[in-house]
Write a protein that binds this DNA or RNA. Sequence first.
DNA 1: TTTATGTTTAACTTTTCTGTTAACGCTGCA
DNA 2: TGCAGCGTTAACAGAAAAGTTAAACATAAA
Lengths: 207, 207
Amino acid sequence: MSNKKERDITTEQKILEVATEVFQQKGYAGARMQDIADKAQINRAMLHYYYRNKEKLFEGIFQNAFQKLIPSMNEVFDADLPLFDKIRQVVNNYITLVFQNRNLPLFVLHELQQNPEKFVSNFFVHHTRPNPAKLIQQIQEEIKAGNIRPIMPQHLVMNMMSLCIFPFVSQPVFQQVFQIGDAQYEQFLESRKTEVAEFIIESIKVK
Amino acid sequence: MSNKKERDITTEQKILEVATEVFQQKGYAGARMQDIADKAQINRAMLHYYYRNKEKLFEGIFQNAFQKLIPSMNEVFDADLPLFDKIRQVVNNYITLVFQNRNLPLFVLHELQQNPEKFVSNFFVHHTRPNPAKLIQQIQEEIKAGNIRPIMPQHLVMNMMSLCIFPFVSQPVFQQVFQIGDAQYEQFLESRKTEVAEFIIESIKVK
DNA sequence: TTTATGTTTAACTTTTCTGTTAACGCTGCA
DNA sequence: TGCAGCGTTAACAGAAAAGTTAAACATAAA
C-alpha cells in the first residue's frame, strides 16, 4: 500500500513536472503528449489515466504557472515600505523569480494572447487578482509631497514590469545584437537586479 | 496573360497576407492550413500550389516579419542626431511600428524561443544584422562629456526596447490589472510615445 | 476554333496525434 | 493461496491535419 502510494505520487508528480517543462517550452499547440510521456519515461496511456486529457493536463499547469506570477506582483503593490525601497525590493524579487522560471513569462503571455478569457475565470475563481491600488496611492502621495516628479502611476508600474521581464523573453534577440554568449548574458541579467531599480529611481526622483 | 498574372498576384498575395495574420496570431504550431485557406477564400490545395508546404509558407512569413523589426532597430542605432533627440525619435518610431503590427513581437519572440538557430541563418544571409556599435559609442561619449550619468550602454538600449515593446505583449495582463477597456488601453499605449522617452531622459540626464 | 499553359477544385492518401480498451501484473490482504 | 484493486502496458480506434493527384476550368495565343 505505502509502496503503491509512493509510486503513485512519484509518477503523478513526475508527469506534472515534465508536462510543465514541455508546455512552457512549446506552448499548448506545440506540445506533444508522446513527448511528455517519453520524457517522463512512462506509457502515454498513463497521462490519460492521471489527467483525463491534454486540455485538463494543460489547465492545471497554466493555473499553476499563472499563480506563480501574481503573488509576486502583489508583493510589489502591497509592501509597506518607502517607495524607493519598495522599488528596489520589487525589482530584485521579480528578476530573481523569473531567473528561476525562465520561460514562464513568454509561456503565459503567448497562451493568454490566444485565450484572454482564461484570465477572467482564473482571476475570479482564485481571488488573487493583482491589486495595484495601494501602490498607486503611494505614488500619488509621493508626487503630492514633491518627493518624486509627476508621472502617471500606471506608467511607472508598467515600466517596472517591462524592465524586469522583457530582457528574459528577448534573450535570443539581444544575445545576437550584443554579440554575447550565454554566461555573459546571465551576468547581464544578474546586474539588472540593481541596475533597473536605480534606473527607475533616477528617473522619478527630484534632485 | 495580364489577367492571369493579375489574378496570380492577387491570390498569391492574399495567401501571404492571410497566412501572416494567422501565423502571427496562432504561432506555427497552432496555425491551421485549413484556417488560412478559409480566410483567404480559396481551396486548401492552393496553399500547396503556391507554397510547397506549411514550413515553406511559414519560413517566408517569419523572415518577412523579422525583417520588419530589424531596420527600425538600426534606425535607432545609426541615426545622426543628438542623443536625447535620438531617443525621442526612436521611441516614437518603434511604438508606432508595433502599433501597426500588434502581434509581431510576441510572434517573433515565441518562435525564436523554439528555434534560436533561425536567427543566425537569417542574420547572416540577409546581412541586416542589428548593429548598435554607433549608438553605444555615442552613449559613451556623452558619458565622458558629462552630459549623462554613467550607465552601461547595453542596459540603456535594453531599457529602451523593453519600455517600447513589453506593454504591447502584456496587454491582456495589464488591462486586467489596471481594470481598463480596449479603447483606454490604446490611449495608454499612445501616450507612451512621449512618456517613455521622457522617462529615459529623466533617468540619464545630469541635472 | 483549337491548343497550350497556368490556375483551381474535389476527392483521396498519408501522417500525426489524441484518446480508449482490454489484458497483464504487482502488491497487500483475507 | 487466491483474490481485489490499482498501476501499467501494448495494441487499437478515431480524429484532425498535412499533403497529393487528376481532372476541370479559364484564358491567351496560334
